[in-house]
């Protein structure tokens, strides 16, 4: 006997993502899901972003890693509330884990929650967390040919941060070719060129973000 099911495999995750969304809406908070490969500069960008919006926005950070709490300790040392989620081998964060973290956070007065996803350009793109904004980073050292290899991440992200632009003179990285490819895959993407090391371009990104959160 054949039984009709018509149920999406990601539906269970998406139901919890919507719960996260309502929880954040009730608190008037904005959530950013930051995704990139290991070493692209996620934690450095978070530190620079926190610095850039401090005074304007009250932030909290949820750190997703397979193991350890190096990143959350680094953030907490700046005085910003940070919670570590260890995925125990899983390659991405799911809405349920973010839900637990949101319940543990003191959300009093928090305007912006930054979620640092597990370092990976594939899996995190499939799992909605209830975020307002998906932000991805590609660093110069990874090469400009990545969009067509990881199409889901590049076409789903609202923002692309091209990091480590200070390295461009030492590589064959073609930033124009990269941006052209991404704009065909993602018609509304916002692209910022930044270098956490020199600070170049960081304020363009943080000013834009402040407007988005406030708007």
């Amino acid at each position: 006997m054949e039984i009709e099911v018509l149920e999406g495999v990601f539906d269970a995750n998406e139901i919890i993502a919507r719960e996260n969304r309502s929880l954040l809406d009730a608190r008037g908070a904005f959530m950013l899901n930051l995704m990139a490969s290991p070493g692209a500069g996620k934690t450095s960008i978070i530190m620079k972003t926190l610095e850039g919006v401090s005074g304007d926005l009250k932030c909290a950070v949820i750190e997703g890693d397979i193991a350890g709490k190096v990143d959350s300790e680094k953030i907490a040392a700046t005085g910003v509330q940070a919670i570590q989620i260890n995925t125990g081998g899983s390659c991405h964060l799911e809405a349920k884990q973010v839900n637990t973290a949101l319940e543990r956070l003191n959300m009093e007065g928090v305007d912006l929650v930054i979620v640092e996803n597990v370092g990976n350009l594939v899996c995190p793109a499939e799992f909605k967390l209830g975020e307002d904004l998906k932000v991805m980073i590609l660093s110069v050292a990874e090469g400009h040919d990545k969009p067509l290899k990881y199409p889901l991440m590049f076409s789903e992200s609202h923002v692309l941060l091209i990091n480590k632009t200070d390295l461009i003179p030492y590589t064959d990285f073609d930033i124009e070719a990269l941006e052209d490819t991404v704009r065909k895959m993602n018609l509304q993407v916002e692209i910022f060129r930044i270098s956490c090391r020199t600070g170049e371009g960081v304020s363009d990104w943080t000013d834009w973000l402040k407007n988005r959160v406030r708007g």
Binding site: M1, E4, V5
Partner: peptide
């Protein structure tokens, strides 16, 4: 983009 279970055949 989908990954959906359409139907199952059971006894």
């Amino acid at each position: 983009r989908e990954f959906q279970v359409e139907s199952i055949e059971i006894n």
